Structures are given as structure tokens and as C-alpha cells.
Simulated scan of single mutants.
Amino acid sequence: MAKKLWVERNEDGSWDAYSDDGAHIKFGHGKGLFNPGDLMKVALAGCAALSSQFPIENALGEGKGARITVDGDYDEATDGYTAFREQVVVDAQSAGIHGDDAEKLKDRVERHIEKSCTVKHTYEVATPVTMKVKVITK
């Protein structure tokens, strides 16, 4: 069964997102808040981070990870993103990895992300969204 998620409005105009297992994030429009477009990019970067964690920790040590940046092309006419660019940077200097070993690590990281990143897979195809509005009255 999928995790249940919901959002609720706060008096200050921000929103809180919750999951039935206790996760929480604040978002909205304004300084210090992620907007929904930002959250799309965070989801993409976060998915790559979790997908690449095993090969990176295996090569560099427990607790090590990549720095992942995402930007996108926004089209005002359609109010949507037309492309995302993601960069995964693995700092292997402290582990002394270079040459062929660095290339092997790069390949392993790419394979893990390609295999396991649900968000990337979803963004790469057209994903239908159904919406139902319910107004509660007496």
C-alpha cells in the first residue's frame, strides 16, 4: 500500500506536507520556503542521492554521498518545466580514487540511478494526473 500524503494550510500562508508515517516538510511561496517547482527538483535530486548511496558508500566509506544539483527550464506559456538538468558530483579525492577506478565508480553510480530512481523514470514519461475536487457542506 502506498504511503498516504496530505497538505494543510497554515495561518501565515505557508503549507505543511505530512505523511502517515510521520514525515513533514514546510513549503509555500516566499522567502525560506520551497515552492512546488522546487519540490519537484528536490524529489529528483533526492531520488538520485538515495539511488547512488550504495555504490558511493561502498567505494568511499559509510556516510559519504554525492552533491546533486538540479535546475530546469520553465515555460511560462504552459506553466510547466520542459527539461531538467541534474549533476551528480562525487568527491573521491580523499579516498585516493582516480583513473580507471574513478571511471568504474562513475559507471556504477549511473547504473544505480538509472535502475532505481523512480522520480527520474516518472519525469521521463508523460504521467497522467487525475484530480477530483470535493466541497464539504452540511
Rank of each mutant, 00 (worst) to 15 (best):
T137E: 11
V90F: 00
V125I: 13
T137S: 09
R111D: 12
A2S: 14
Q93C: 15
A43P: 00
Y74M: 12
I136G: 06
A48F: 01
S19V: 07
R9N: 13
T137F: 10
N58A: 15
N10Q: 13
L44K: 00
S19Y: 03
I56V: 05
F84V: 00
N10S: 09
K64M: 14
E62V: 10
G37Q: 04
H121W: 07
D16S: 04
I25A: 13
V119S: 10
C47V: 02
H24T: 04
L60F: 09
E114F: 11
A92H: 09
N10W: 06
A102W: 05
G30W: 00
D107M: 14
L105F: 00
K31D: 10
A48C: 07
K132D: 09
K115H: 14
H98E: 13
A43N: 03
N35K: 11
H98Q: 14
S94D: 12
A45D: 02
A48M: 04
D91I: 07
I97D: 02
S52F: 01
V7E: 03
I136R: 13
E76L: 10
K106L: 05
L44W: 01
G96N: 12
Q53D: 14
D38T: 03
G28V: 00
T118S: 13
F34M: 05
A95H: 04
S116F: 06
H29S: 03
Q53I: 02
I25G: 00
L5D: 11
P128N: 14
S19E: 09
T69Y: 14
A59Q: 05
V119D: 04
W15P: 02
T127I: 14
E57Y: 06
A59Y: 00
V119I: 12
Y18N: 14
G13H: 12
V135L: 15
D75A: 14
E124D: 11
S94A: 15
T82N: 05
L60E: 11
K26C: 13
K138R: 15
D91K: 10
T127E: 15
S51H: 05
G99F: 00
I97L: 08
A43E: 00
G72R: 00
L60H: 09
V135M: 13
S19W: 09
D16Y: 03
H121V: 03
A49M: 04
A23H: 15
L60A: 06
D91C: 08
A102H: 03
G28Y: 00
R111H: 11
A23P: 03
K138F: 15
V109N: 01
G37V: 02
A49H: 02
D100R: 08
E86N: 07
E11T: 01
F54T: 07
E86C: 09
D79G: 12
A17E: 05
P128A: 15
V89C: 09
K3W: 07
L60M: 06
V7Q: 06
A43S: 06
D107Y: 15
L33P: 02
G65D: 11
R85K: 09
F54E: 15
L5M: 11
E86G: 07
K104G: 03
D20Q: 13
G80R: 10
